[in-house]
Design a protein around this nucleic acid. Sequence first.
DNA 1: AATTAAAGATTACACTTGTAAACGGAAGTG
DNA 2: CACTTCCGTTTACAAGTGTAATCTTTAATT
Lengths: 147, 147
Amino acid sequence: MTIEMDKDITNAEWEVMRVVWAQTEVPSQVIIDVLTDKRGWKEPTIKTLIGRLVKKGALKTRKDGRKFLYSTDIKEDTLVNETLDQFFHNICSKDIGKTIGVLIDEAMLSHDDVALLKEKLIQKEAVAYDTVPCNCMKGQCQCHHHR
Amino acid sequence: MTIEMDKDITNAEWEVMRVVWAQTEVPSQVIIDVLTDKRGWKEPTIKTLIGRLVKKGALKTRKDGRKFLYSTDIKEDTLVNETLDQFFHNICSKDIGKTIGVLIDEAMLSHDDVALLKEKLIQKEAVAYDTVPCNCMKGQCQCHHHR
DNA sequence: AATTAAAGATTACACTTGTAAACGGAAGTG
DNA sequence: CACTTCCGTTTACAAGTGTAATCTTTAATT
C-alpha cells in the first residue's frame, strides 16, 4: 500500500508540507502565519499552494465548522527518501559512495547518528561489492572509457 | 572562484550535462545520439536543451569548422553536492543523520566505499554533537513541540 | 557556382510554478 | 436581518520546462 500522489511536490509546496508535517492537523491560518513569516509570501500565495496540494492529493481536508483542517497521509521521511532516490538516478552508481561521503562531511551529526551510521556500514560490509557496477547509459559516464 | 551559473539545471538538462561530463568536448551529434537512444527525444528537443544550457552559461562552445564542440566548467560532483545541499534545507537538521542512514541502506557500495565512509565517521566523531540543534522555523518541525 | 545537407537559431505550444489579486459564500456580530 | 469578516475558490500572469517543428545559415559536394 503506497500513497499515490498525482505529481511531485515543488519547492514552494514543500514549505507548506513541512508545516503540516509539524502538526497533525492544521488550519490554513497556521500555515499562512508560518510562511508569511518565514518566506514573506502573501496570504493568497499560500492559499494557492494549499489548494494545489489538495488538488494533487498531497493534503487531505476535514471540515471544522466554517474552515478546513489540513493533514496528509504522506510521510515526510518517505517523501524525502523518494526524492533523494530519484535524484540519485542522475549519478553513476559508482559515485554514490563518494557522494554520501560528502554528505557526511558536511552534515551536523550527533554521536547517536554517528553510531547509527557506523552500525549500518558494518551491516553493509557483508553485502559490499568489490566493484560497484556502473549503471549509466553508454555516453553518460566515464566508466565506459576505460573498458 | 566559483563558477556562477544563471539558473538551476532542470531534469531534462541534467541528461545533457551528463553526456558532456562523460567527455571533455562533444559535438551536438554525440549528445543527440546518446539521448535519442536513452530517452527517445527528438533531435530538435535535444538541440533546445543544449541551447538553453549554453544560454544559461552551463555549457561553453568552441567552434570546430561548421559545428560547435560543447564543454563545461561546472564540475559534476560540485553540482551534485550543491543540489543535495539545497534539498537538505527542506529537512530538519536533526534528521539529516537518519536520512543519510537510509541512503546508505539503499546504496550499492564497494568495500572501498564502506571503508571511506567509516573513515569519515571516525573523523566526524570528534566533532559530533550530543544533540544536533534544530534549524527549523517554529511551526515547521516537531522539535519545537517538546520544549 | 549551384545544390545539398548538416547544424545552430527561431518559433511554438501546452503545462507547471511562483506569486498574487479578486470573488463568493457562510458564519458571526450588532 | 443587515453587515462584516474569514476562508476557500477562481482568475491572472509572467517565467520556466518538456517537447518539438520549421527556418536559416553555411560548409561540403557535384
